[in-house]
Simulated scan of single mutants.
Amino acid sequence: MSYNEYQYLIVDVVDRVATVTMNRPDKLNVANARLHTELSTIFDDLQRDADVDVVVLTGAGRAFSAGGDIDWMQEAVDDPESFEQTVSEAKRIIFSLLDLEKPIIAKVNGHAVGLGATLALFCDVIFAAESAKIGDPHVSVGFVAGDGGAVIWPQLIGYARAKEYLLTGDLIPARVAADIGLINHAVPSEALDERVTEFAGRLRNGATKAIRWSKVSANIGLKQLAHSIMDTSMAYESLSNRTADHAEAVAAFREGRTPKFQGK
């Protein structure tokens, strides 16, 4: 399997472990149109790669992923019809993550925000640097948390806590995230690589088929839930893309000011 056509994802396969690195470090690995498209195909490619048994997902530089590119958001505000492709790709990202039979480990080296948080939380086991924060602040830019947050957060921390964080967009320090069960482990930054490498090696050296099929079995309910929610949540996110509040939030972000929401 060749991954040479990917522009913003670096894929390194060593000893049957594929490390996938989101590679826009100067932009904190936020998703633009091209990276979003690549995320919608990479997990299918990894499923087909016979040389890979375990996957690690991480980000280059000081962030895992800080969410969506604000310039890309402006393009969608200016051309709402273009958001239809985003909706289609967003569903493919989630469904392909859940369909990937090989265990996938999130190595959250820095902040995981918005789509970045969604990507991390849909992985099977999540290790985060203690310095990292995790959150889904879609509402902060006048967006519905439609790209997977409404699916995964309640399953990990319960509906009451999930709704508190999804409705406020507050970021959670990694240690707190681990304590409430949002992620598996918060570790010192200097120990993150070693801990993930050790765990990936343990899975690689295990009974591969038993591990894969255990993941498949555990994911059945989550896949059913995702298929029942994603159409609606992404439809609402598409509607929110057309609101005055979202346009105001994007403009305010680009102008370096606080948005003034009017509920429109």
Rank of each mutant, 00 (worst) to 15 (best):
G146I: 03
V52P: 09
T41W: 09
R257N: 00
M1R: 07
A66S: 14
D12L: 02
D51F: 10
A112Q: 02
L182P: 09
T19V: 10
A50T: 04
I42S: 11
I172W: 11
G181I: 06
T168N: 15
T58G: 06
L57D: 05
F122K: 03
V108K: 02
L39T: 02
R48Y: 10
A210M: 07
H138I: 00
E130M: 06
S233G: 01
A226N: 10
A247F: 07
V151H: 11
T41F: 13
T21Q: 08
P80Y: 15
L100D: 06
H227E: 14
S65F: 12
T243Y: 15
A129L: 05
R204P: 03
K215C: 07
T21W: 13
N241H: 13
A178P: 12
D99G: 15
L97E: 13
P103A: 03
T208C: 10
A249M: 01
Q47W: 04
A117N: 14
V196W: 08
V77H: 15
V141K: 11
I70V: 08
V11D: 03
A186I: 05
T168Q: 06
F127L: 08
H227I: 03
T86I: 05
G59C: 07
R204K: 15
V144A: 15
K102T: 01
I183G: 05
N4C: 09
D179T: 01
T118D: 14
F43T: 00
N241P: 03
H36V: 01
E190I: 06
K27E: 12
L115D: 00
G135V: 00
E81C: 07
A112C: 04
V125E: 06
F261R: 13
L222T: 13
D45G: 07
F253I: 09
V125H: 11
L100I: 04
Q74R: 14
Q7P: 01
G116V: 06
N23R: 00
P154F: 04
T118P: 06
I104Y: 09
F64A: 02
S189N: 08
